[in-house]
């Protein structure tokens, strides 16, 4: 009924977190001086250390969440579960439907948010292994030189 609202809320929070992290990374890379905020600035600062910036990794999560939320919102519109008039969600129009909507949000919605986050954790874990290998390869090359 409105299960996509849970990953939507997570996407909103994570977007704010990503923005704050990117701001911090840019500030650190400029030695405390804040300048124009851009994605590439944060990525550049991380590439000096041979690691992918945390903000970039967080962007992967927000992209996955927003991508899913947009297409699922369309699906809900298709099934008439979202309407363009108040209260916008048909499940919120009467108490009986609201109860089932909340139940769906707490089961399916939470499940969606958890699985997306879990897949992102696995993804970043694999990337972390790649980073370690890259760093090990770089240091080995330095020793040879």
């Amino acid at each position: 009924m409105a299960c996509f609202l849970v990953p939507g809320a997570e996407a909103l929070v994570m977007t704010a977190v990503t923005y704050a992290v990117r701001k911090r990374e840019v500030r650190l890379s400029n030695g405390g001086v804040e300048k124009a905020l851009s994605d590439s600035d944060a990525h550049m600062s991380a590439s000096h250390t041979g690691k992918i910036a945390l903000s970039r990794k967080l962007t992967w999560l927000t992209n996955l969440l927003w991508g899913g939320v947009v297409l699922l919102a369309f699906e809900h519109l298709w099934h008439g579960e979202i309407v363009p008039w108040f209260p916008f969600i048909t499940g919120a129009s009467n108490p009986a439907d609201t109860a089932s909507m909340l139940h769906e949000m707490s089961t399916v919605g939470v499940g969606m948010a958890v699985l997306v986050t879990l897949i992102w954790c696995i993804m970043t874990g694999i990337v972390h292994i790649f980073e370690k290998r890259q760093l090990a390869g770089d240091s080995r090359q330095d020793q040879v030189e």
Partner: peptide
């Protein structure tokens, strides 16, 4: 990729339930 994978994961959970 982000759009389709995000939706696929979420629909998968829906399908499981």
């Amino acid at each position: 990729c982000w759009l389709f994978w995000g939706a696929s994961i979420m629909w998968f959970v829906d399908a499981v339930f």
